Simulated assay, not measured.
Amino acid sequence: MQHLPNDTIDVLLDQFGQIETVNGDPNFPTTADAWGGNDTVTATVSQPEADLTIFGDDNTTLHGQSHGGNDTLTVNLNYGWNAFLVVGDAQAMTDNATGGNDTINVGARALYTSVHAFGDVAGDMSGNSHGGSDTITGAVGWRGYDNVYAGDAGGSMSGTAQGGNDNITLTMSGENVWAGGALSGDSSTALTDNAQGGDDILTVKISTEYTDNALDKVFGDAPTMSGNAHGGNDILTGGAATDYLYGDAAVYNPATPGSITGGRDILNGGAGNDELSGGGNSDIFVFNTGSGNDLITDFDQGNKAVGSTATEHDLINVHDYGFADWAALSSLISDNAAGDAVVHLSASDSITLDGVQAANLHPTDFLI
């Protein structure tokens, strides 16, 4: 087995329109059992229209028993109108290749900046490849756009590929955030075949006064799941704006009815008026004081989306509101004009349950 050295690389982009590509382990061996070094790459960008690409290992395909190193990749930004691609390991992985446990930090709070950050590969994971357990920290500034973060793959995950247990945090800041980001625990596109998502933690934070246009979508696993894919047990937390949280995916295409399995996820939209979809399996929806007027799209209905007839038991956690008991809470639940149950938590906070009537709710549906 060939082990590559642990390198420290510092890069400065201080020219207008500069284009730079950095590989932590350039010319990664084509042998099937190479092991990448634990590299540290730090890039500082001080001029506009910079185009920066960083691979923790190399822009290649890891195959066989190859293993990515545990890399630390950091981008410090002092300007705007830039485009960054930061990848923990390589372009793709197949066979039994494994990604490293990487740390990625892209401080792109400047305006008009595009960031794609992926924990393991920029493209696809296939075969029996495994993603590492990565930590990704990103930031979106004023008029930021096209910000995509995924714990494992920028492309799809197929075969029996498995995602790592990743932690992604995205912070939005500036006078006005006009566009948010897309966060996926595993793949930024799709899980298919028998691919399996990891147990991921996805968090959106907003530190800005104006948030009406700060829209973000958070997928516990991937935007689409098909075939016999399995979702991980994920924790999703939204910010102070409008969040769209999906415990597993937004679109399901099962190979046979019920062939897709959702994870047991925890969703918390935070403040703002959010839309929450747990997906298949039993999930927990958490609401803290000041949560806004939120919508749960699939309370106890997530399995229907994957064609499963299995009973699920979602829970709504309103412990933070301090209700004395079920009698106190149930008196605040009524149907709206569309026949959907609305839980009136306070004068400014509510939960609407699409397709569920108030009469069908019970004490066992809530954590009080």
Rank of each mutant, 00 (worst) to 15 (best):
D51L: 08
D51S: 06
D51V: 09
D51Q: 08
D51I: 10
D51E: 13
L52W: 08
L52R: 01
L52C: 06
T53R: 08
I54H: 06
F55S: 04
F55N: 02
G56M: 12
D57C: 04
D58N: 12
D58C: 03
N59P: 00
T60M: 00
T60N: 01
T60H: 01
T61Y: 00
T61H: 00
L62R: 13
L62V: 10
H63M: 07
H63Y: 04
Q65K: 09
Q65P: 00
S66K: 15
S66N: 13
S66R: 15
G69F: 08
G69V: 12
D71Q: 05
D71Y: 02
D71L: 07
T72S: 11
L73H: 06
T74Q: 07
T74K: 06
T74A: 06
N76C: 02
Y79M: 12
Y79C: 14
G80R: 05
G80K: 03
W81T: 12
N82Q: 10
N82Y: 04
N82M: 09
A83N: 12
A83V: 11
A83H: 10
F84R: 10
F84E: 03
F84C: 02
L85M: 14
L85E: 12
L85F: 02
V86Y: 03
V87Q: 09
V87W: 00
G88R: 02
G88E: 10
D89C: 09
D89P: 00
A90G: 00
A90I: 13
T94M: 04
T94R: 11
T94Y: 05
T94C: 04
D95A: 13
D95K: 06
D95N: 14
N96C: 06
N96Y: 13
T98Y: 05
T98W: 07
T98G: 07
T98V: 11
T98I: 14
T98M: 13
G99P: 00
G99V: 12
G99T: 12
G99E: 06
G100W: 05
G100N: 07
G100D: 09
G100Y: 04
D102Y: 04
